[in-house]
């Protein structure tokens, strides 16, 4: 969904009653729009009666929050130790070559954004990936391609 101030206001309103609402509000906005554009900061700050500096601080602290729109599907490859032990670094190199993009980059057709993740809890079936909402264990390029194809439907 493209960024929309009115829709954002509805989402903020639905979450502002929570204790310590800033993170749940930002998470909900991120989930709805896929990223948090610059104008989020002022709007959330005003609604929650916090300073823009505080909201900016929260947004920039957490790795999950993107500041730019991403591709249609996010391909998260685990880079942590258990996956390293099963060759995840070589897989990452292969995947970025095949996709023609590096970490946090999006393919030219806008289909896939390649993102690092540190542990999906699939350390016994490494290397692991999360393609859209699909978990992939013992990942290799053919299996990742299959998962990506599923996301296109």
């Amino acid at each position: 969904m493209a960024w929309n101030k009115e829709k954002a206001a509805v989402i903020i309103e639905a979450n502002r009653h929570l204790d310590g609402p800033a993170l749940p509000v930002l998470r909900a906005l991120h989930e709805a729009f896929g990223y948090l554009p610059e104008e989020t900061t002022a709007q959330v700050a005003q609604a929650l009666n916090l300073s823009r500096a505080e909201i900016h601080g929260v947004i920039t602290f957490y790795h999950d929050f993107r500041r730019e729109p991403a591709g249609l599907t996010s391909l998260k490859l685990c880079r942590a130790e258990a996956c390293q032990a099963m060759g995840s670094e070589a897989l990452a190199t292969e995947v970025s070559q095949k996709l023609g993009t590096s970490w946090h980059g999006t393919t030219r057709d806008g289909r896939v954004t390649l993102e690092p993740v540190f542990c999906l809890g699939l350390c016994s079936v490494a290397p692991a990936a999360l393609v859209g909402t699909e978990l992939v264990g013992r990942a290799d390029w053919p299996r990742l391609q299959q998962a990506l194809a599923k996301c296109d439907h």
């Binding site: 942590a80 130790e81 258990a82 996956c83 540190f118 542990c119 809890g121 699939l122 350390c123 016994s124």
Partner: peptide, 12 residues
Amino acid sequence: DEGDSGTFADRM
């Protein structure tokens, strides 16, 4: 917030 690589007991 089980973030350690090599752990998945909380998740399971």
